[in-house]
Write a protein that binds this DNA or RNA. Structure first.
Lengths: 343, 343
DNA sequence: TGCTGCATCGCAAACGTTTTCGGTGCGCTG
DNA sequence: CAGCGCACCGAAAACGTTTGCGATGCAGCA
């Protein structure tokens, strides 16, 4: 069913049909009614390729996330909740969110280049931002609207939103120190993710501010940020001659592995080892003892990401007069029972 | 950068450029070399809209999953792992997987209709199949290639893959009965998902085969199949005057909530209540005591789904001569410590 | 009446690509 | 030398849509 068939059926020109459907003012009210009625009857919906070709726009926004060989970072509910927020914001604009999965054996930079070159999407969300991320330079150079979930050292001024990892690390260390902990382990991503650097820097600064010497052996860089990652990181910390009494995790999923490893070692999480995490997923909400962690509304975050992206798109700038979005979102402490004073 | 600019730069016609890039045989080897070289130099990639418009194909395959208001079923790693398998199969065919999120306030049927009408994708994966699923009838009528993850009573012959829920329910009941359990609770989805019916039927049949009367109060239909769902379903079962000694769950995520609720009631999972689940996510792998559950390779499943879909697409039928895929995948028991005999 | 302005609509170009068709030039055969 | 086949390439149509431009008709006004 093309616009031509619809126009023929109504005995009017395709131009008028198009104008009627797109809500232009220069079309008679009665004509518009007939067009809309016929479109409804035949279930006509404009062909996206034709429209895209003419307008140079696809009405699709890509959200790029990485996958690894077996599952994906995408796997935790972190992104799922963000998507929900994004879609809430998009619904009013008839924009489609398409999730672009970047396989681990594909370079994220190449992946972005191909997506952009094919004009598959009008704009992009990018996540898993690296310390130096060539995608950012590329998108700026090509003038493709995008927003980054995470800061980077790359590129000039562009929209981004990040979580307040400095604040989290600082507050967590201070809280643990106030409760009497002196040896505090930290598990950060072993990859080039920028948040790992940010987190570690803040951790060291907070230790120094509390007059505690930094022990490099207490900083475990874990390639995986999954349950397995938490498991093995705990392994490493338990193997030290002087074990830490507390652990700081860069997400919440790892806590599951941490608990498991502690149990296996005959230790009780909380009692024998304090644990603090970051809430990225409701999965671990039911851990026992309840995990003390830092929380944030991911739906709100997704919504704000969408607003920031739309504000950077010429076609939507007027409807989103919020300027350049560069925000650090504070996280709120949710006290559990996993971080009492050391025994 | 369009094909015209590229052709002008090379002083040849756009038709020849197109033929060279698409590997046609009627183009001189030297000419082809020059074209490929120039394309590489300028980073030319064919515009997807133009190509789609001409060919009537988008090279994009949609995977439709549902979201709820806060997160998405998508949230557990179930789908993430499937995506990985799908992409492995797609990589060789230059097909893109786009994840289409269907918000809960949007009817899945309407959503499919819009996606199809816009010609946004060439084919579809659909999941969360309902007992009577209008999407299936619609896709068959419109002759849109698709494959369903799950069986349905709707529609005629079409490709699908489902997990062996009958086998799982039967084996689980038999195992529990063999260990001395007589009162076995079952938690199924409270929605119209077909798997809920299949599972419950097999559960009742297995009870009958073991000479155990079916007690409707032991069958809890839970709207949510999340941790919360498991939590509240456990609530309901614990409230019975004669509690069950074992619980059968339709997934693994719920087990987290079940454990939590049992702990709160002063009960120890495994010791005071046997629990068996289905592995859909590695998250619960670290539950303690280890959950006895049924497992399957989701990556393989995804790969097979992709093969089944490609086999139903005219353009790929020759490269995938496997006929109509209608398969029930058996699941393998992974024995844990959560289902000992009753005390 | 004649002119202006407005509402409404048709015509046709344009977006970028693929593919069919026909044409050119060349080598080979008889 | 005539004829044929083949390799290679250019021209142009087609996909479905939006939109600028011009045409038409009619009301209002002098």
């Amino acid at each position: 069913m093309s616009i031509r068939e619809l126009a023929n059926h109504l005995n009017i020109s395709i131009g008028t049909v198009s104008r009627a459907l797109n809500g232009r003012s220069d079309v008679n009210a009665e004509t518009r009614r007939r067009v809309l009625e016929a479109a409804e009857e035949f279930g006509y919906v404009p062909n996206q390729s034709g429209r895209s070709l003419r307008q140079g726009t696809t009405n699709a926004i890509g959200f790029m996330v990485e996958t690894n060989s077996e599952t994906s970072t995408h796997g935790d509910t972190f992104f799922s909740s963000i998507y929900v927020g994004v879609q809430k914001e998009f619904a009013a604009h008839h924009l489609d969110l398409v999730v672009l999965l970047c396989p681990s054996d594909d370079d994220p930079y190449d992946h972005v280049r191909r997506v952009v070159a094919r004009r598959f999407v009008d704009a992009l969300f990018i996540s898993a931002i690296q310390r130096h991320d060539p995608r950012i330079d590329f998108l700026i150079e090509r003038d493709i609207p995008f927003i980054a979930l995470g800061r980077s050292l790359s590129g000039g001024s562009h929209p981004w939103i990040d979580l307040d990892f400095e604040g989290v690390a600082t507050k967590a260390v201070n809280r643990l120190v106030a409760r009497g902990h002196r040896r505090i382990g930290l598990v950060t991503p072993g990859t080039e993710l920028n948040l790992g650097y940010v987190f570690a820097d803040a951790y060291r600064a907070a230790l120094a501010a509390n007059g505690i010497a930094y022990d490099p052996r207490l900083l475990v860089r874990s390639e995986q940020t999954s349950e397995e990652g938490g498991y093995h990181a705990t392994d490493a910390l338990l193997a030290l001659d002087t074990r830490p009494t507390a652990m700081l995790l860069v997400n919440e999923i790892m806590a599951i592995g941490v608990y498991r490893r502690l149990h296996e070692a005959g230790l009780t999480p909380g009692r024998d080892m304090a644990v603090i995490g970051l809430r990225q997923s409701p999965q671990a909400r039911f851990l026992s003892p309840a995990l003390t962690c830092f929380d944030i509304s991911l739906v709100d975050l997704g919504r704000r990401l969408a607003q920031g992206l739309l504000a950077s798109m010429p076609a939507y700038r007027d409807s989103h007069p919020i300027g350049l979005v560069q925000e650090i979102w504070p996280m709120e402490l949710v006290a559990g029972e996993s971080d009492p004073p050391p025994r």
